[in-house]
Amino acid sequence: MDSMLYGTPPLEAVDEAVLGEIEEMRRDLKYRLAEPHRWDGQLRRQLQARAIQGSNSIEGYRASVEDIESIMAGEDPLETSGAVAREISGCQQALTYIQVLSRAPVFAFDAGLLHALNFMMIGHHHDKTPGAVRPGGIYVRNSATGEVVYEGPDAERVPELMAELVGWLNEGDLEAPSYVRAAMAHFNLVSIHPWRDGNGRMSRALQTLVLGRDRITTPEFSSIEEWLGQDRNTYDYYDALAGAQRRHWSPHGDTLHWVRFCLRAHHLQAQRVGRRLSEAGEVWMLLEKQVDADGLNARTVSALYEVFVNRRLRRSRYQLDESLSQGQAARDLRDLAAKGWLTPYGETKGRFYAPGARMRAIKEDFAQRVVPLRDPYR
């Protein structure tokens, strides 16, 4: 029987070269992560928060990394609305489950799992039949012009298309590189558009799960959701989808341009993650020396590292990270503020700490050292 899905394209020499470089960066990353460091937990949390931020911002749900980290910890965010916080929470629940599934010793893809992940993401939208196949046709519109840019397959075809996609996820193109299979899983699911809502977030999450199952690296280190959610990249993402979809379900188009778009995103995100990992070690050791010279407790480095990578820190976050009492955490942060490392703002529940003059100087120094990322296809 002929496949009803979009086919995996053969790669050209240039793609094989890019793929080789991505795999080399991932191997290096895996090797570096094998040795535990004090900053690993915070780096993993930030990467997950940035992936959630990226995937939701594509859908118009915007929140700061700091607020997303608060939501992930079960706290109320400082700035994000309740409606957006629910979207973030749903996305986090699904991505956390994907982290579990990536390590599960017994696993197979099935339609029930995909529907369940969709329910986790958008279960708070009762009017959108979360976790169930859409009842009718679906049209994707350009939010600026209202023009229909893509029409999904008829609703009655969705169950058999999902069944074929699940079969392919378990058995299809197993000799193809993981990055290519993950890109095609993303593309086929978003093109089937099986649900009334959450299709984009689900397709990006499925791409991450395929890579997670292939043990490329843990999901937070292999996801390209952060990359896709950034400004110009989001427009390029929509253009890459539209170029291969050709406005309606027509699964015999050329998908090489789409796969190349994903390989390029993986390469650029891997460069960025590798740089963050190197920077984390350098910054942490620099801060350890400074904290020691100031006669402060060594644990306060984790508070300083948090304001190095983010705009602000809340006492509850530091208290949780270092397993402290409320009093200990408050004293440490007060000492850091007195030494010029942090600046406190707000009162009681709304209180947070931003970088003080000494931390701003370190942040500015590192910002000036940033080398532009290298486009592998140029």
Rank of each mutant, 00 (worst) to 15 (best):
I224M: 11
Q92Y: 11
L324T: 03
V190C: 08
A49L: 12
W168L: 00
Q42N: 07
T234L: 00
V291L: 09
R232C: 00
D294C: 13
G200N: 04
L95C: 08
S178Y: 00
A111C: 09
H126D: 07
L114P: 05
D254V: 01
A182S: 11
Q319T: 10
H193R: 12
T8K: 03
A240N: 06
M72P: 02
T80Q: 02
I216F: 07
L313T: 03
R134H: 10
Q326F: 09
R86G: 02
A83G: 11
E59F: 01
A34E: 15
G123Y: 06
K128R: 15
V370G: 00
S70K: 05
E306I: 00
A94M: 12
R264L: 02
E151K: 12
Y353G: 06
T145C: 13
G152N: 08
P9N: 12
M162S: 04
N118V: 09
V307S: 05
T300G: 05
L333V: 03
S203L: 01
D214N: 09
Y235K: 13
H248K: 13
D254I: 01
T8V: 15
A298F: 14
H248Y: 12
S143W: 06
A242K: 14
R204Y: 13
Q207F: 07
V291Y: 10
G274V: 03
F308H: 06
Q92I: 02
S70F: 05
R360G: 01
D231G: 13
D197V: 10
P344V: 05
K289Q: 14
V148W: 04
R204H: 12
L206I: 07
D67R: 02
Y31N: 14
V106W: 06
V100S: 12
Q93V: 06
P130D: 09
E160W: 11
M72D: 14
L228G: 07
Y377H: 04
D239Q: 14
M121G: 01
R378C: 05
E59Q: 06
A108M: 10
E21Y: 06
D214S: 12
G281L: 01
D231Y: 02
A104M: 04
G131Q: 08
H37Q: 15
V371H: 11
G274R: 10
A330E: 10
L211Q: 09
Y150E: 01
A17Y: 11
D197M: 09
A244C: 02
D335F: 07
A367H: 15
F352L: 09
E322Q: 15
I138P: 00
D294A: 15
V149W: 04
L189G: 04
T96W: 08
Q48H: 14
A108T: 14
G281V: 01
C91L: 04
G229Y: 05
S64L: 06
L313Y: 04
I22W: 02
D15I: 04
A303Q: 10
T234K: 05
